[in-house]
Design a protein around this nucleic acid. Structure first.
Lengths: 324, 324
DNA sequence: ACAGCCTATTAAAACGTTTTAATTATAATT
DNA sequence: AATTATAATTAAAACGTTTTAATAGGCTGT
């Protein structure tokens, strides 16, 4: 089917070694020979097979990306960022969607191993996989954590400055005059919440009330001294909060201001028009792949903190004087 | 680092051939030997490297998926479906996001070739790539088109029954008493529109008015005999239509019923609550991969039509008598 | 004219498998 | 006991590369 190095060698009437060296412009080969070989190779539409190359160099030029679910709007952009950089550097991107299933995750990691993958980026993983990932990482298959906090100091991560993000949201709300603020929900990144608390402490205002569940929030919103604003953990959560508030009869932003986090595409739809903290998802993906690439080249890298940005829309407004 | 077949052979004190045959349970090897080898292999945590295997069989056990953009909610589920099936069969899924760029697409196809990919699934592609894809397809690297109409009879596709989907939407609206219906927008799948027209013809009602642009729609909605319902090409378009209508002062569904297509996740949010034609995206992905897999095994397959399903929500309602 | 040096090229080994054909060991038949 | 048939194992080749070390062919300088 496709031409191999042997075919080229035969046609050019040289050895396969000469072909190999010519194509990588090795100074040992005479210029005239190189030109001949290159011309014939092009003419035969020859490209070195990664299989042979991989076998001999034990580098497959394949990287893997593990995540639990592409369908959350958030990770798509990340995949895009990773993919672009990878292709550019000649790496194939193997995608591994675990769907949250541990069994699936194990299967995927085994597959990656069998394929002699050169590096791995992870966004979601199970506790039990950590030793497995660590093993990859120590055996010259670098691992980078993307958009999450790394679980081991030998594995760098690329993550938004969550603390700063929390502060930005608080700063914005405080600037609009809000004094009683709630935070929904705490489970995941505690950093964002910490950012809020730190800002509050610094500005000597009341720290946000922490809601763990929707029931918590509902109760709080019905109380006499209910919050006038909510910092939501994500845009997703922000939408939930909006629904909860509306069910109680509160209107956004008239009765309640809400900030989200991520700036997924629907945040800008007029139905939501959500003030939010933007994460440059594509950038995060690209940066992760860049770190991985550097590590695969043997360089040392440090974890990266990506800067968040406040996007002001219509889900937040000045607090009404009479209620303050 | 990781054990190779040689290591196992040495430890088991047999030849590498014996190891290879034992692990695939070849009847020629004595049972007792097999057991010994299998035990030692497991104990050494040995898995055959795909690289060696691929080189010798010239099958990489890699498949590629080409699409322009993962971030449209729609394709995520497809990727998930493809990925699941692929992993299950021991195939690695290389993802190729073209971002609509032709140059990128070419780069990706070359990468796929270099990686000796075994099969390709395509959702979006440029005209110019067709000859390229066809070449893969003829050279024992089968191609399957996913969620789009194939461009060549030698390449099967998996696609929703668009005609039927159109009919379903029309049937639903007609059932609610709507007589004047618009279709937005026509550019892509003409099949859906055809389905609408066919249904109208059959039931002897007025065929839907075709809007090509938002301006068309706006004009139509402002006309005295304006449509009372719109069949939108996709959920995405349905949302656009909703916005356009609301800007004019029409309320959904009170003044205008809208049906979408796809049932992406936001369709079920209370802000939209969109009556739509569901595409089983995951199923479509899975089916595409299954076809590809069969073709890679040398079997002949036929294109598949997937059945759409009407999901009734609140964006459609009975036409008001006074206006009919 | 010959040792010694470049320069250009190539043979050969290696990477990790699978598979075919050959070899060895064992059992069965005369 | 010698031959044949059968069962079990293995040597070797092949897949497509890269790389190292070796070879051949000219030159140079004596």
């Amino acid at each position: 089917m496709t031409a191999t190095i042997k075919d080229v060698a035969k046609k050019a009437n040289v050895s396969i070694a000469t072909v190999s060296l010519s194509l990588k412009d090795d100074p040992r080969i005479a210029k005239i020979t190189k030109e001949k070989v290159v011309k014939i190779a092009k003419q035969m539409n020859y490209f070195p097979s990664n299989l042979g190359r991989a076998l001999q160099s034990s580098r497959s030029r394949l990287v893997g990306y593990i995540l639990s679910d592409v369908s959350t709007s958030f990770y798509n952009q990340i995949v895009q960022g990773i993919g672009e950089f990878a292709t550019d550097k000649g790496y194939g991107l193997l995608i591994g969607i675990t769907d949250g299933s541990e069994e699936h995750e194990i299967k995927l990691l085994r597959l990656f191993r069998e394929k002699s993958i050169d590096g791995i980026i992870v966004s979601n993983w199970h506790r039990k996989s950590e030793s497995n990932l660590l093993q990859f990482n120590m055996n010259n298959v670098p691992v980078v954590v993307c958009s999450a906090k790394s679980f081991h100091q030998s594995i760098p991560d690329v993550v938004i400055d969550n603390n700063k993000g929390g502060r930005l949201a608080m700063e914005h709300l405080a600037g609009l005059g809000h004094k009683r603020i709630a935070y929904c929900f705490s489970d995941e990144s505690i950093e964002r919440y910490k950012g809020c608390v730190e800002f509050a402490k610094q500005k000597k205002i009341q720290p946000p009330a922490l809601c763990h569940t929707e029931a918590d929030l509902r109760r709080l919103l019905k109380s006499p001294k209910r919050p006038t604003a909510v910092v939501a953990f994500s845009d997703f959560v922000a939408i939930q909060v909006k629904h909860t508030a509306e069910k109680i009869g509160l209107r956004i932003p008239h009765d309640l201001s809400i900030t989200g986090f991520d700036d997924i595409w629907i945040a800008s739809l007029p139905e939501f028009d959500l003030t939010t903290i933007e994460q440059p998802q594509r950038e995060i993906g690209k940066l992760s792949m860049e770190l991985l690439w550097l590590r695969m080249k043997g360089e040392n890298v440090k974890s990266q903190l990506v800067q968040p940005r406040l996007v002001v829309r219509k889900s937040t407004s000045l607090i009404k004087k009479q209620r303050n």
